[in-house]
Nucleic acid binder design. Structure first.
Length: 401
DNA sequence: TGGTATT
């Protein structure tokens, strides 16, 4: 499997690196983000853009808009608050960090086990001490691929009831209408935060259905009044515009049945296919006599492998040794390299105490054996800048835990 | 009727 690693600087700027097998997905994802361009950028430049909609831009910009508080969207379902903190903590000191979780499952009378306690809603907030670090986090981590997701990092708008429930569901769109045209149609009613057109998974053709999230609910209301049952320019049929279903208003019944359907589900996708191809479970079984129909860690946490000396297994996941990193390597490059392969819980660049430069190696902890093994198989021997990486499970011999 | 966007 070929993996192209281009130069570190451009990786850090674009945050768009991904292993080859997922190239198609990445392009599709990035296109979405790019066609979101203007609105994404506006969001990223939150304070100044927000100001443009206010009557006294300078004052409201400086008083209301935080330059340290970020919202992070499209996080992998299984990413924890600690992992979020670890990822964003690699940029700078964090004042606070919160992964937003579902309230129904989180406070349920039903069960308080980790598996059922408050499912991640896929977004969170990171508040930095220093505004410069917040800006750096946007530049470095926005667009980062983690598992099957491409995260979005932008300034959080000041929390307010007026920005809630501002998401619209639009149907009956001409199949030829692009996301840009959809935005053009709706932008007359306010500032668009996100837009999306749903496409057929196989053909890629528009399903004529989309979403528009406005900055404020009143803007969404005006758009319904103005566009519902109207024909867009050139269209033969009128469109339907209404408030989108709010996923958080799903019944607890639906949520619980969802949990039952896939209590331990990771995002398999291409990873699972890769894993199957490599027959990694069998390899593990042959090498160590360990059954890993699921990731060993997932069976009962730390104890399932207690006392079994397996390289790379550190008790909290699978520790991977990454050798031949450049002196200026930092944690974010490790997140970018390993994140697309699966659940990464921690990354660490080992630095010289005096110079603070990377000593040439680092560690990555991944939750699932299969994903770690695919990452190693893919990244070992590949060129990062002018260096060829050596990637393996951490051995006890080389470095003590 | 989303790749769960305001704690």
């Amino acid at each position: 499997m070929a993996v192209r690693l281009c130069d570190v600087a451009s990786l850090l700027r674009s945050g768009s690196w991904a292993p080859e097998p997922w190239t198609g997905q990445v392009i599709a994802t990035m296109e979405t983000q790019m066609s979101n361009g203007p609105t994404c950028n506006n969001t990223s430049n939150g304070p100044s853009t927000m100001s443009n909609n206010c009557s006294s831009p300078v004052e409201s910009g400086s008083i209301e808009d935080s330059k340290t508080n970020l919202i992070v969207n499209y996080l992998p379902q299984n990413m924890t608050q600690e992992e979020l903190k670890s990822l964003f903590g690699s940029i700078g000191e964090i004042e606070s960090c919160k992964l937003v979780r579902d309230k129904i499952t989180g406070t349920s009378w039903y069960s308080r086990t980790d598996e059922l306690a408050g499912q991640s809603l896929g977004y969170g907030f990171v508040n930095y001490v220093d505004p410069k670090d917040a800006e750096k986090a946007i530049n470095t981590l926005n667009g980062l691929r983690l598992q099957t997701k491409t995260i979005k990092v932008s300034y959080a708008r000041p929390s307010s009831a007026s920005i809630r429930d501002a998401n619209l569901y639009v149907s009956g769109l001409p199949k030829t209408m692009t996301q840009k045209e959809l935005e053009q149609l709706f932008s007359q009613y306010g500032r668009i935060i996100t837009s999306r057109i749903l496409v057929d998974q196989v053909t890629g053709v528009s399903r004529g259905v989309g979403f528009i999230r406005f900055d404020r609910r009143v803007e969404a209301e005006e758009a319904i009044k103005g566009l519902n049952c109207q024909k867009p320019p050139g269209a033969t049929e009128p469109i339907t515009v209404k408030f989108a279903n709010n996923p958080s208003q799903k019944t607890s019944q639906a949520l619980l049945s969802q949990l039952y359907q896939s209590p331990n589900r990771r995002y398999p996708g291409p990873l699972a296919q890769q894993a199957q191809r490599f027959r990694l479970d069998n390899l593990l079984n042959m090498a160590y006599g360990v059954k890993s129909r699921f990731s060993p860690m997932a069976i009962d946490g730390v104890t399932s492998l207690a006392g079994i000396n397996i390289p790379g297994h550190a008790g909290t996941g699978w520790c991977i040794f990454v050798y031949n990193l450049a002196p200026d390597a930092d944690e974010s490059i490790l997140w970018q390299m390993f994140g697309p392969f699966g659940a990464v819980t921690n990354v660490k660049v080992i630095r010289d105490f005096n110079t603070n430069k990377c000593k040439g190696f680092g560690f990555v902890t991944m939750t699932n054996y299969d994903e770690a093994a695919v990452a190693i198989a893919s990244l070992n021997g590949y060129r990062l800048g002018d260096r060829v990486l050596q990637v393996s499970f951490k051995t006890n011999k080389t470095h003590k835990a």
